[in-house]
Amino acid sequence: MTPFDTLTGIAAPLLQDDIDTDLIIPGRFLKTVTRTGLGDGLFDSLRHDEGGAERADFVLNQPAFHGAAILIAGDNFGCGSSREHAPWALLDYGIRCVIAPGFGDIFFSNSVNCGLLPARMARADVAALAEAVAAGGVRLTIDLIAQQVSGAGEWSFDIPPAARARLLQGLDPIGETLQQLAAIEAYEARG
């Protein structure tokens, strides 16, 4: 995975609470055997109507938010299934950071594991930040080392230290664990 330290990009607000993984990437897109190409299915039912045409009122379809790299979302973002296809779809579309008051647990760890930053911010701050970028075209800079967001005021966000370290290092976690092979073997040997 690509290490994450800073990111500058257009921010798009999507303040609905409980955006579940079926909304992020519906089940019918999960028949793939690769990690790439899922961006087309991202938010499919929100982005597209039943005939497949773009819904003009959906935020990511508006020209001022084209190419968004940061999503400002409601509480409990990514609740639901364990599909890593959700962060894969976001990344494939170009979104590398989601700012929200809270995240589904599995979505959170999946995101960290594939290099998407899930940044926690108090509900009131998320609402204010969404307001600040609502006109469109606003570029924010996310600094993971300082845990700061700038570009439309200054904001700080939360991320557990272990998750932060993983994102910053972008190391191969399996390789790291395999260095602990002796400890794993000792555990297995205790019966």
Binding site: S82, I106, S109, N110, N113, I174, T177, L178, I184
Partner: peptide
């Protein structure tokens, strides 16, 4: 439940 990166980790390391 775990995600696919974690599935790979478990397959490789248990």
């Amino acid at each position: 439940g775990i995600g696919t990166s974690e599935v790979e980790h478990v397959l490789a390391t248990q």
